[in-house]
Design a protein around this nucleic acid. Structure first.
Lengths: 354, 354
DNA sequence: CTGAAAGCGCTTACAG
DNA sequence: CTGAAAGCGCTTACAG
């Protein structure tokens, strides 16, 4: 049996006051006599009254929900461990405050815009979290046009009035490069994510800077698209070079794992013949053989911090840009000193020329 | 600039009719003069009017949203490619009808119950999709108590008045076993998922039946928990046996991949020394070396079918149990004929005793 | 400090 | 076929 839910009227009657006072008391407004407040709260408790979000939404013009729109091919998104952890973090921040997460997964950018419009047209959310920021991201002006509040993961390239919640990828990439150089690698390649994505570009730039700092030329950078398939292709291209790299820094784990598969298929040993590092490390890399050396970030905390920032923004507070713990390297088994063979000999020759 | 949204009053005024008539026209109720209907629809179109979901929710006592509560450790869920694809399928079914998906990810069963209660208390959803059915699943009676509609993925063990949308795992497992037996394997093990989960039990039972059908004894079944770590441990245990298996059928891909890693770490070649099959195959297995032979199901379609069934149920229709395409085997590289060595010789000896 | 009233934007009997 | 009115369950000025 589903019993009728109590309403504010039931509580008012039980407490012997008006609806207004019940509303004030429950919303913690000042100017309610302590005894009235007690009586009201007790009555509400006894009746098990929870204010109707529907009614509140109508009067306050708020949805009490946050939105997350993920624009990726579903086949691809399942490779990536980022979103589940990120969503878990959001969830943990929302549950205690009685807010909900409305999730959309769309295949492309067109559907993405349509989804944001629908979200607004149907008043589903009070704000959204923008992930996977892109070059001159069309979502920033779109949301502004729609009047939807947002926080961005990292700083957009263009002007944005939305707070950014960021994690610095660079230290992780730098640490990966330092680690490889320490091991004796001189010919280090990078398989980047789609250059249209800001975090891909950032990682790529960090890679080049780190190499330059070591006096090495960042001339082995191949753009892929964050997918296993793209990572595999990029790796095949790199290994087909006359002077193939002895180490590859990948922009994410799925590409690194697929790249490792390609190398092994070609008869190379990892890490003896090829060292490999990933990024955003999940469980898959840990149980691979060899276990993947990777760069990790606190994805779950990022989700929580983003949600809280957005909630504050919605509440009308000033929220400043914030920065979480930077990415850091976790060394496992896929990196080692290069064995002296053709590729590295070729490198020495090149170095003496440089 | 955010312009004020049009309301039903604006449309009524523009069309020169009452609000009631606008409401009737828009909801396709009978008994509206064709010309009035036209006038109203045109006015609505010109004003860009979309009925407020908030107001409709309050009057119709509907949320126009579906819920999905995932109860898994976030570190673990990201290994599994099931949910992203499943959610994409739900999304594709909901978007055209203007409904939303409210997603919750919770770490354990206690939080899970609390989440369902909150979903109901806050009127967030009209129904939920129950995944990962468990033995004597406490969610079935809970939802009944809460008066929340639902569809289940597969049939619960206990009595349930909720429609079931099912995919038969058995043919896939059977095909995997047949394939291995055809290759010459006689000592085939199974690494099962958590026995408390119905689909784990079903896969395990299908495995045993298939083996029995071939006159083999299903005595090498180890229970794990669907995680890479659990799969790795189960594999270590199996390979430490005096007469280790020559092939292992895993209940999902993350366990299979981790198991393969364990075997390779022990110096075994896959598939020469050990054949391996997975389940619910995603991209990761395809790019592994060797590529994982696995059982696939149409996860995305499952999501769509579930959402549509639930929508029908909420609309008050009778919805029957339904069955989608059964799971099927995809042979890749991780399976081959066993090489004749100690383990298989030992097996022959055992067979002659049996 | 408290109550009566209006209003949020719809839907739905009820008359006509 | 159509309109006036009440109601969904809250919040929020406005009086007092």
């Amino acid at each position: 049996m589903v019993k009728q839910r109590a309403t504010i009227d039931d509580v008012a009657r039980a407490a012997g006051v008006s609806k207004s006072l019940v509303s004030f008391a429950l919303n913690g407004k000042p100017g309610v006599a302590p005894q009235s407040r007690d009586r009201i709260l007790r009555a509400a408790g006894e009746l098990g009254w929870v204010p109707s979000v529907r009614a509140r939404s109508l009067t306050t013009a708020r949805a009490y929900a946050l939105g997350l729109v993920i624009a990726r091919d579903p086949a691809v998104i399942s490779e990536d461990s980022f979103f589940p952890a990120f969503i878990a973090g959001i969830e943990a921040a929302l549950a205690p405050v009685g807010q909900a997460l409305v999730l959309s997964m769309v295949p492309d950018e067109r559907a993405e815009h349509e989804t944001y419009r629908q979200l607004v047209a149907h008043d589903r959310v009070d704000g959204v979290i923008l992930t996977d920021l892109r070059e001159s991201d069309s979502r920033v002006p779109l949301l502004r046009e729609l009047g939807l509040l947002a926080v961005t993961l990292g700083h957009p390239q263009q002007h944005s009035e939305f707070p950014a919640v960021s994690v610095d990828d660079a230290p992780g990439i730098r640490a990966a490069v330092d680690h490889l150089v320490d091991l004796g690698h001189r010919r280090i390649a990078h398989v980047a994510g789609s250059s249209g994505m800001l975090h891909a570009a950032r990682r790529s730039m960090a890679f080049s800077e780190a190499l330059t700092l070591h006096g090495l030329r960042p001339d082995l950078v191949v753009e892929a698209d964050f997918t296993a398939q793209g990572g595999a292709k990029a790796t095949r291209d790199l290994l087909a070079l006359e002077h193939p790299p002895t180490a590859i820094v990948y922009a994410n784990d799925p590409m690194a794992l697929a790249g490792m598969g390609v190398a092994q298929r070609l008869g190379l040993r990892v890490p003896e013949d090829l060292s490999v590092t990933g990024f955003d490390g999940g469980e898959a890399g840990r149980h691979n053989f060899p276990a993947l050396t990777t760069v990790v970030t606190s994805v779950q905390e990022w989700g929580g911090a983003s949600a809280r920032a957005l909630l504050s923004l919605i509440a009308g507070l000033d929220v400043a840009d914030s920065e979480l713990d930077p990415a850091r390297l976790v060394v496992r088994e896929s990196t080692a000193s290069p064995v002296q063979h053709r590729a590295s000999r070729a490198l020495s020759a090149e170095k003496s020329i440089a």
